[in-house]
Each structure stands twice: as C-alpha cells, then as structure tokens.
C-alpha cells in the first residue's frame, strides 16, 4: 500500500495515540539488562533498538496458559474465547516468520478457533532489526527480513527517522492515528533497501553452511548420527530450548476446579518435547524416554517434520534464543546441522 516516514517525535506521538485507544499495546522493553515484550505504558519505554527478547512474542498468540472451556464438574462444558484486540508492536522478522508458521499449523486440518480468534484480533507492527543479538542467525535461515505477513513494517533509518510500510487494512486503520506524516521519498526507500541488504547478511553470528532447504534431506540421512548422543549427554531435560523457541507450540491440557468443587476450567499450557515425560502415557510407559531421542526430536521437528507439514519453510527461524537459554550450551541448531552436513554425502 504505502510507506510513510516518521520523525522520532512523530513516531512517539503515533505510539501515544495507539495507547490512547485503550487497546493493549505489547512491545519490547528493557528487563534486567535484557529485553522482554510487555504491556507498553509510555512511548519512552519502547525500545526499537532491542536485540532480542527473552521470550518470543508467541506468548501473545499462544499464551503460556489459555482457558479453552469452562465446565461443571463431571458435567457439560462451555467454550471460552479469550482473545481480544491487541497491538503487537516491534516484532522482528524472524519472530513474525514464526508466527506466520504457527498460523498455518493451527489453521490447517482441524481449525483451532481459540488460536485463530486470538490471532485475528492482533495487529502486528513488525520492525526490522536494529541491533543484532549475540546468537542470531536469521540471515542463515532466510528470515532476517520479511516482505509480507505484517500489518505494518517499521524500519529505523540511520538518521533516526522511521519508515512505516502499511500492508493491510488493519494497518491502514491503525496508521490513521498517525496524523500528518509524509510519504517516504525514493531516497528513504533506498535507505530502507540498504537496511534490508545489511540485515540479510549481518544477522549471522552462527553460519549455517548450507541452504536451509537442504536440512530435511540432511536429517533424513542422519537419524543414527553420534551427535545426538554426544550433545544429549549434557541435556538437563529442562525444556528451556522449547520454552524460548518462537516455533515450538506443543501444549498440555489440564482441568482445574474452583473451591466450590462444582465448577472449573480446562486450559492448555506450554509443554516441551525435551521434558522427560512428554510422551508418557497413562500407566507410565514413556515412548521417548532417552534424552538423546528427545534432543533429536526437537531438531528433526525444526528441520524436517514441521517443514514437511507446512510446505517447506524450515521451523527454525534463527533467533538464537535456544543457544542463549541452554544452560548446558548444547542447543545450538547450527552447530548440529553443520556437523551433520559435514558427515553427509549429498547426491
């Protein structure tokens, strides 16, 4: 549609105007020397220069705990839709890619209304990366920049001005709050292209030595590679890699009753395939009881299983969060994939 240009002051005013609508605005802010998405109270708290957040913004599309149903104990259930309008501001391209994948996973096959309804009510204002994080490898995964999937895309230029690419009707509606801003000039668009070109190469602290599209093939040949055992030996099965991953979406479902013991709710909450009892069934048989098998499963899901389910896009977006979050320092997908590549004969 259109690209507009904000001065920093105009952008602050735009953010203030969004806050005044009463719709919650979730945005990256400083937290203990790191960054986290949280409800924004003032434009001053917004950190467009953040490198990476501790948790990805998936927590707004798939909350850590989400009520699905309310019920009478041992009686009928009623559907609960918790979604409400929200503005998700400052989503990096790799995180946006992950959300778009999740959209497909919850949409395809059996339509997950709880996810989709929540998602439909979110307006996403994406943001090109300003500061690369210590472990980002989005350039390797082809997710350093995006061309679609957002409602508005922000790009901060060298001179501090901010371009806003308005891509959807939802974005259009929001940008009306901006007041009088000028359209971007040819020179601005050129500057934005430079940012993209830069990011497409520079968000690469770990370099994958092949095209990501080769990963399914590489994995296919390395199911019994020694790397699984070598890495998993140090795995705490703490699920930190799952928790911080923008593409992990496995969940558990539990019931909780109120003090009246007559009513309650059924909710889903994040789960992780690295956790010891992820595949344990009633009667205590654990179908994936080896650490190495759980460790392998995660990297197969990212590099093969999910891509095959959603049509090609690798389910690792190169945010690097798992690398930082893993206490044992064994989670780096690039390290594993490169190791496999090195031992693989590709025909």
């Amino acid at each position: 549609m259109s690209v507009l240009k904000f001065t920093p002051k105009q952008f602050d005013d735009f953010v203030s105007a969004m806050l005044k609508t009463g719709r919650p605005v979730m945005a990256p802010q400083a937290k203990n020397g790191r960054f986290a998405f949280g409800p924004l109270a003032s434009p001053a708290d917004l950190r467009l220069d953040y490198d990476v957040t501790i948790l990805p913004p998936k927590k707004y599309v798939l909350p850590q705990v989400e009520t699905l149903l309310e019920f009478e104990v041992c009686g009928p259930c009623r559907s609960v839709q918790e979604g409400q309008p929200m503005i998700l501001l400052g989503v990096h391209p790799y995180d946006l890619t992950a959300i778009l994948q999740m959209d497909e996973l919850f949409r395809q096959g059996q339509y997950d209304k709880h996810y989709m309804d929540r998602r439909c009510q979110i307006t996403i204002i994406a943001l090109d990366v300003v500061t690369p994080s210590a472990n980002v490898f989005a350039s390797s995964m082809g997710t350093a920049t995006v061309r679609s999937g957002y409602d508005i895309l922000l790009t901060v230029l060298k001179d501090g001005s901010i371009l806003a690419d308005v891509a959807t009707a939802k974005g259009q509606e929001l940008i009306r709050l901006a007041g009088s801003v000028v359209p971007a000039s040819e020179a601005d668009l050129k500057a934005r292209k430079d940012v993209w070109e830069h990011n497409n190469a520079a968000l690469n602290k770990h370099i994958l030595l092949c095209k990501p599209s080769l990963l399914p093939k590489i994995l296919e040949q390395n199911y019994n590679h020694p790397v699984w055992e070598e890495k998993a030996r140090l795995c705490y099965s703490c699920g930190s890699c799952n928790q911080v991953c923008p593409t992990c979406y496995c969940f558990d479902v539990q019931d909780r009753v109120n003090w009246d013991l007559k009513t309650g709710h059924r909710f889903r909450c994040w789960d992780g395939c690295l956790l010891e009892n992820f595949a344990t069934v009633a009667g205590n048989h654990n179908f994936r009881k080896d650490r190495a098998a759980r460790y392998r499963h995660r990297l197969y899901r990212k590099g093969k299983y999910v891509p095959e389910k959603i049509g090609g896009q690798i389910a690792c977006v190169g945010c690097g969060r798992c690398i930082s979050a893993c206490t044992a320092k064994i989670a780096n997908p690039v390290e594993v994939y490169n190791r496999l590549l090195q031992d693989t004969k590709l025909g």
Partner: peptide, 20 residues
C-alpha cells in the same frame, strides 16, 4: 498435578535472565 520437570521451565516462562 505436581510438576516432574525442572524449575527452568517456570523460570523461562517468567522471562528471568538465567543465573548462570
């Protein structure tokens, strides 16, 4: 429903910076 997984799960959920 007593968890059988480590504290890290909940610590990450709280977006704490790892003590390590």
């Amino acid at each position: 429903p007593v968890p059988d997984y480590p504290v890290c799960v909940e610590c990450k959920a709280k977006e704490n910076v790892c003590r390590y």
